[in-house]
């Protein structure tokens, strides 16, 4: 009797397990086909010279050696890091300032209006935003330089000088993405217990003291998430750079993802591009690990 019960349960379990696996199958198959397989193939390709029409051969570590010895790739690597540092700092800080500004009592209509206004750039495709900003940034006919000249200053080469080009892209990126972090931070700020804040107010703590001592520690997990999320996005920056500067002048604004695409589909060096992609993945992984380790010191769960 007992054995029969056991066997019955086991059948049920098996049936449940089977249906469980069947439910998993579609997403797992998609994951396998579109995520895992490309990752594995990319890793394999990074050790080869690959051309589907003219033939392929193994080249060992040549692709990696080329990446780490070529001065172009060095510059592009640092460009990407530089962009990430500035864009993440800008997005998080501006997003936080907007969130703090909107996290207060005001007529609902204004609240929705401001939230919408700051969030709107997020939902517009980066490609359109970049095209519009390229008109703002034009040297001679650009909107910004029109006012710069009106103020009696000499026009700024926003996109045609390596001194400003990267900053111009960062400014646009912050304009576009800060609204996203604002929404996340507003949600987090509303979760800070009112009682804590009221107690601090009673104790006479100033606004910024309350922010740094109570609010920021309370929402630190959210800030941490935002930083990781923004970093991964910034490391993959692509279309805004392509449209604004095509990576120029020279290589001044070229990012790693642009370099991957150009190597793979302009130079047809699929293998070399794969090796850059592997390096980029490792860099993103490393930066995320560093952020996680550092978060132990300042994130309070």
């Amino acid at each position: 009797m007992r054995a029969a019960v056991m066997r019955q349960a086991s059948d049920l379990q098996r049936a449940q397990a089977l249906s469980g696996y069947l439910f998993l199958l579609p997403s797992f198959a998609l994951y396998l086909a579109f995520v895992l397989a490309p990752v594995v193939v990319t890793c394999i390709l990074s050790f080869a010279y690959f051309d589907p029409m003219l033939g392929s051969r193994w080249v060992g570590l040549d692709n990696y050696i080329r990446f780490f010895t070529d001065d172009r790739s060095q510059q592009i690597f640092w460009n990407t890091l530089r962009f990430t540092i500035f864009a993440v700092t800008g997005n998080i800080c501006v997003g936080m300032l907007f969130a703090l500004a909107l996290d207060r009592k005001m007529p609902a209509i204004f609240l929705y209006l401001f939230r919408l206004a700051f969030f709107l750039p997020v939902i517009i495709a980066a490609a359109f935003v970049s095209i519009v900003w390229s008109y703002f940034y034009g040297d001679d006919l650009g909107v910004i330089n029109y006012y710069v000249i009106r103020l009696g200053l000499s026009p700024v080469h926003w996109l045609t000088s390596s001194r400003y080009a990267m900053m111009s892209i960062v400014i646009m990126d912050v304009w576009k993405n800060a609204g996203f972090f604002m929404i996340i931070f507003i949600a987090a700020l509303q979760g800070v217990p009112k009682t804590l804040i009221e107690a601090a107010v009673m104790d006479g703590a100033s606004y910024w003291r309350r922010f740094f001592r109570i609010v920021l520690p309370w929402i630190s997990p959210v800030v941490f998430f935002a930083i990781v999320y923004a970093s991964i996005g910034a490391l993959q920056v692509f279309e805004s750079v392509v449209i604004l500067t095509r990576g120029g002048p020279g290589d001044a604004t070229r990012s790693m993802s642009i370099y991957i695409v150009e190597s793979a589909f302009d130079s047809f060096e699929i293998g070399y591009a794969a090796s850059i992609a592997v390096v980029m993945t490792i860099v993103i992984l490393a930066i995320t690990i560093v952020q996680f380790l550092a978060s132990r010191a300042w994130v309070r769960h």
């Binding site: 390596s162 002048p249 020279g250």
Partner: peptide
């Protein structure tokens, strides 16, 4: 083109 633009922009 990449190098040409850099030269014309006085980058190098």
């Amino acid at each position: 083109m990449r190098n040409y633009v850099a030269m014309m922009a006085d980058e190098i």
